[in-house]
Amino acid sequence: MKSFSVRKLALAAAVAATGLIGATASSLAQEVTLRLHQFLPPQANVPKLVLDPWADKVEKESGGRIKIERYPAMQLGGTPPQLYDQARDGIVDIVWTLPGSNPGRFPSTEVFELPFMMTNAEATSRAYWDLFEKSMKDTEFKDTHVLGVWVHGPGMLHSKTPITKLEDLKGMKVRAPTRIINALLGQLGATPVGMPVPQITEALSKGVIDGCVIPWEVTPALKVPELVSNHTEFGGDHALYTTTFVLAMNKAKYDSLPDDLKKVIDDNSGQEFAAFAGSTQAGADGPSRQIAVDRGNNIIEISAEDTETWKEAAQPVYAQWVEEMKGKGIDGQALIDEARALIEKYTSQ
């Protein structure tokens, strides 16, 4: 009887040990859960075509040891301008946001938002990453671990009344995403109205604004082709404007990862990811534009020749920005020259 009890206890201990090992193995199988927070609905193109594929790839390459929970449309609370601090403070692990949502905080990024600076999203995103690594990583973005930076495709005007020439903008209330685009619109004669992108739908429907500047790709998610019937595009080699984005991770969370999981994150960060994100976002412009075409909306194309008038009118924005940068101890003209050279380099490749 005694030997049976001993055997029974030994078996129970073995089963318990096996359970403990199994639990340990199970916990190792998924070591990290990361919460990704952003401001657009899940069906919008950036979550669908950029952020979800990125997160899926990280999960797969980690062998399931990283799980990325996706929280769209500010589901975890706060407002879009608070996203960067949510990552910095560890309220969430990863955010996708606009540096320009915090005016003056990331001044170097604004060089890519200056009027008629961008050629195409891929080349400009590569240039942005280069300049980020050289001038921004250890200064303006030192409080987070940045995974990628990029820009969207050509920014353009969407309006209730047609904009066929510069004078048509006069007095029109137009939403802009950042202070640089506000400055541009003001210089061109409009009344700029700064607001985060999720507010555009309501602002247009209630008549708070007469139009907005956004790229084509985000228009379906915001119902813009249903709310306005005029869309103004610009000819030439450079876009009216673009907006900068950042995918940022809490620094302590990244530092806490084991080396092999850090490598998974690193392998999906950097310039190639920036180029993928920028080109993919811009790639959604065409299908989104077609929605407006199919509705019979008015697509206005400013010729390359007439676009020169708009460029000329926008030039004071550069001088004003350089002067503002001087007050921050930044050589704005040097940044402009370097950004242009990098964009040209990657555009010609």
Rank of each mutant, 00 (worst) to 15 (best):
P198T: 01
P198N: 06
Q199G: 07
Q199N: 14
Q199M: 14
I200K: 07
T201R: 13
A203Q: 10
L204C: 10
S205D: 13
K206M: 12
K206S: 15
K206P: 00
G207A: 12
G207V: 06
G207K: 04
G207L: 04
V208I: 13
V208C: 00
V208Q: 12
D210A: 12
G211F: 12
G211D: 08
C212H: 07
V213E: 11
P215K: 01
W216K: 08
E217S: 09
T219M: 11
T219H: 03
A221L: 05
L222E: 12
V224W: 06
P225C: 11
L227G: 10
L227K: 10
L227D: 02
V228A: 02
N230I: 05
H231F: 15
T232H: 11
T232C: 05
T232W: 04
T232Q: 03
E233L: 14
E233I: 04
E233D: 09
E233R: 10
F234R: 05
F234T: 03
G235L: 02
G235Y: 09
G236P: 05
G236H: 06
H238K: 10
A239H: 01
A239Y: 14
L240V: 00
Y241A: 14
T242I: 06
T242S: 15
T242Y: 03
T243E: 07
T243Y: 04
F245Y: 15
F245T: 01
F245H: 12
V246R: 07
V246M: 07
V246I: 11
V246L: 01
L247M: 15
L247Q: 07
A248K: 10
A248Y: 04
N250A: 07
K251R: 13
K251M: 00
A252G: 00
A252I: 02
D255F: 04
D255N: 14
S256G: 08
S256V: 09
L257T: 04
L257S: 11
P258Y: 08
D260K: 13
D260F: 14
D260R: 10
K262F: 08
K263T: 15
V264C: 05
I265H: 06
D266K: 15
D267C: 07
D267K: 04
N268K: 07
G270Y: 12
Q271H: 01
Q271F: 01
Q271N: 09
E272M: 00
F273K: 02
A275V: 05
A275Q: 04
F276C: 00
F276G: 00
F276I: 00
A277Q: 05
A277N: 03
G278W: 06
G278F: 01
G278V: 08
S279A: 13
T280L: 02
Q281G: 00
A282W: 06
G283I: 03
G283N: 07
A284Q: 13
D285S: 04
D285G: 09
G286N: 14
G286E: 15
S288M: 13
Q290V: 05
Q290A: 13
I291H: 10
A292M: 02
A292S: 15
A292T: 02
A292N: 07
V293Y: 02
V293A: 09
V293Q: 13
V293I: 14
D294I: 02
D294T: 03
R295K: 15
R295E: 00
G296H: 11
G296C: 08
N297L: 07
N298M: 01
N298Q: 11
N298D: 05
I299F: 10
I300F: 03
E301T: 08
E301G: 01
S303D: 04
S303E: 05
S303L: 01
